[in-house]
Every structure is written in structure tokens, then in C-alpha cells.
């Protein structure tokens, strides 16, 4: 199937990497983190890249999922799956209720409101020490068990997160190429025109906001059980910004762009460790330079360039048929 060609290549890559590098730290440890980041970036891309609603507080939903799982399973001994489900439920309710007032805002106001929401949630995590463990975090979170099989090694986790990540990417690709996905993109293109085509933009925005939040919460629960420990630092304002950066760095409104951005931004700090003290500075510089010189993002920018080169030898049809998202940011 041509529509999902990129997806199959990706899936093959995820499956084959540990075969060739079974005990490689970069595959099974950093790779797992990258997988969680991919899930988050893909979910944020649905909201920000496709529907055009910026969020600087996405880490909050990641945190709500992670902490609900952590608190219920570590403190109260709940089954991790039930804890995860409760996290999803709680996230869904919170997202649903803030979506309407928040998504009435646009541009910088929307950025500020989502940012404020993220900070408020983070402060709640820090301040409610008796429940969350406060700034020191919460440990002893049990691992997941899948039909009696305990996920207890790095490689096992690599498999679980890999499958979850591929599932989320598959869902995202399906959604975008459907009636609902077109409604999202229409909303981004022109809100009045979308309304005139019969799209209820308010419920569509609310829907994608809740969906993105649920996926982030799911990632949070996985993160919680995989790490065995959570602390508020993982869900801060900075992480929200990092997520936005992943989406933008890869290229907005492209699922593969979000995947690319998440993987690059996960591995970059690992590579920059060599530079020690210069790490923060180099990271900032890369961010700035990419946005100045490749504002559509690295992945989408390079892909468009490849299309342009191919265009000289091909008919326009074979080019545009690929995927319906060029740089729209």
C-alpha cells in the first residue's frame, strides 16, 4: 500500500535495529525515550501542525498521565493498566473542560494561556508533596505486565514502546487522511470557510485538543512505568517547549516530520554531552539557526527539496500524490 509506505519502512527500522544492536545503549535506552517523545510529538502535531492551534503546555497532559499512573500504582497498589485508564479518564475530563475557553483564543494569547496552564499543573505537582512526592518525585512505580509477561528489561521496554509508538503514528496517519483530518486542516486553512462547509469548528478544536491530550497522557503512563520514577522536572514548561521544538524542527503538519524532530532532539543532547559546558549554548544555536534558515522544518524542507529535484523528471501527479502536506506553517 503506497499510502503507508513511509510507515512500513519506519516499522521495519524499529523492528530491525535491536536485532543488529541488541545491547546498544543508544538503541534500547535512548531509543525508548525517543519512542515516548515521538508519541508526544505526533500528538502535539495533530493539534499544532494540522489544526493550527499552538500549545506551550502539552507536557502538562504528559504529566497528568504519568502522575496518575505513578500515584495509583505505587501508593495505592492499583493494577498499572487500571491506573493508566484512570489517567486517561482524568486527562480527558480536564482537557475537555479547558478546551473551550482556551481554544477561543488565538496566536500569542493562545500560546500564553496554554503556557500558563502547563505551569499551573507543574506547580500543583510540586506543591502536593503528600501525594506526588513534591520536588523530589515519586519512586517504586511497578512495571507493566502484559498477559502475565512482565516487561522487565530494556529490550522488552523497547518492544512495548516501539509498538505503542507505531500504533500512534498509524492512527495519526489514518486520521489525517480522512474526513476528520480534513476538517482539522480546513480549520487551520480558514476558520470561516471551514464553518461554511458545515464543520463545527468549536467541537472540532475541542476534539483534537482532547485527543492530543489523551495520547500525551498515554505516553505519560508508559513513561511512568518504564522509568519507575517520576519527578515534576520531566513535565515542566521547558519540556513543553521541547515538544513544540520537535514538531517545528521536523516540519509542521507532517507526521513523519514530528517523528524525525522527536528522534533528532532526543539524540542531540546525548551527542552534545561530548561538549559538556557548551551543550546548552549549542542546543540554543541549533534551534535558532534551523528556524532562521529552514523555517518549514528540516524533514519537510529536505523532502520538498527532493520533490523539486525530482519534479524536473516527473509529472506533477506523481509528486503531489505522495502526501498532502507541504510547509504550511
Amino acid at each position: 500500500m503506497r499510502r503507508l509506505a513511509g510507515f512500513y519502512i519506519l516499522a521495519a527500522g524499529v523492528a530491525l535495529l535491536p536485532v543488529f544492536f541488541p545491547d546498544n545503549y543508544f538503541i534500547t535506552v535512548v531509543g525508548v525515550t525517543a519512542g515516548i517523545h515521538v508519541i508526544l510529538a505526533v500528538s502535539l502535531n495533530l493539534l499544532m501542525g494540522y489544526a493550527g492551534q499552538i500549545s506551550l503546555g502539552h507536557a502538562a497532559f504528559f504529566g497528568i498521565g504519568a502522575y496518575t499512573s505513578a500515584i495509583l500504582s505505587a501508593r495505592y497498589g492499583w493494577n498499572p493498566w487500571l491506573a493508566m485508564l484512570t489517567g486517561l479518564l482524568l486527562t480527558g475530563v480536564i482537557a475537555y473542560f479547558i478546551a473551550r475557553p482556551i481554544l477561543r483564543l488565538k496566536g500569542h494569547y493562545l500560546a500564553m494561556a496554554t503556557l500558563g496552564f502547563g505551569i499551573i499543573i507543574n506547580i500543583v505537582l510540586v506543591q502536593n508533596g503528600q501525594l506526588t512526592g513534591g520536588p523530589d518525585g515519586l519512586g517504586d512505580i511497578p512495571s507493566l505486565t502484559i498477559f502475565g509477561w512482565e516487561v522487565d528489561s530494556d529490550l522488552h521496554w523497547y518492544g512495548v514502546i516501539g509498538v505503542a509508538m507505531l500504533a500512534v503514528i498509524w492512527l495519526s496517519l489514518n486520521i489525517i487522511d480522512s474526513r476528520s483530518g480534513r476538517a482539522l486542516r480546513a480549520l487551520h486553512g480558514s476558520e470561516v470557510a471551514a464553518e461554511m462547509m458545515g464543520i463545527n469548528t468549536t467541537t472540532t478544536k475541542t476534539g483534537v485538543f482532547v485527543l492530543a491530550a489523551l495520547i500525551a497522557s498515554f505516553a505519560g503512563s508508559l513513561f511512568s512505568h518504564q522509568q519507575g520514577f517520576v519527578s515534576p522536572g520531566s513535565f515542566s514548561f521547558f519540556f513543553s517547549i521541547e515538544l513544540v521544538t520537535m514538531v517545528v524542527l521536523g516540519g509542521m503538519a507532517s507526521t513523519y516530520g514530528a517523528v524525525f524532530g522527536a528522534i533528532v532532539l532526543t539524540f542531540l543532547p546525548e551527542l552534545l554531552v561530548v561538549f559538556e559546558d557548551y551543550e546548552v549554548m549549542i542546543f540554543g544555536a541549533i534551534l535558532m539557526l534551523t528556524m532562521i534558515f529552514l523555517p518549514q522544518g528540516i524533514f519537510v524542507g529536505l523532502r520538498n527539496l527532493a520533490y523539486k529535484l525530482r519534479k524536473k523528471n516527473a509529472t506533477p501527479d506523481s509528486i503531489a500524490g505522495k502526501e498532502q502536506n507541504r510547509g504550511t506553517a
Binding site: A111, D277, I282
Partner: peptide
């Protein structure tokens, strides 16, 4: 150099600048 870029792009540029300046200060 990034004139005419979208809101999100300029936000990321200035965030990048702030991280860069913080990095220099840290150094």
C-alpha cells in the same frame, strides 16, 4: 533574517535565542 515567518517560527527563534544566551551565561 527570519522576517515574514509565522508566529510559531518566531517564537521558536526567540526561545532558541534565550537558550543560547543562557548557555553563554552558564559557560
Amino acid at each position: 533574517p527570519a522576517r515574514g515567518a509565522s508566529v510559531v517560527t518566531t517564537i521558536i527563534i526567540t526561545i532558541g535565542a534565550s537558550i543560547f544566551l543562557r548557555g553563554v551565561a552558564l559557560l
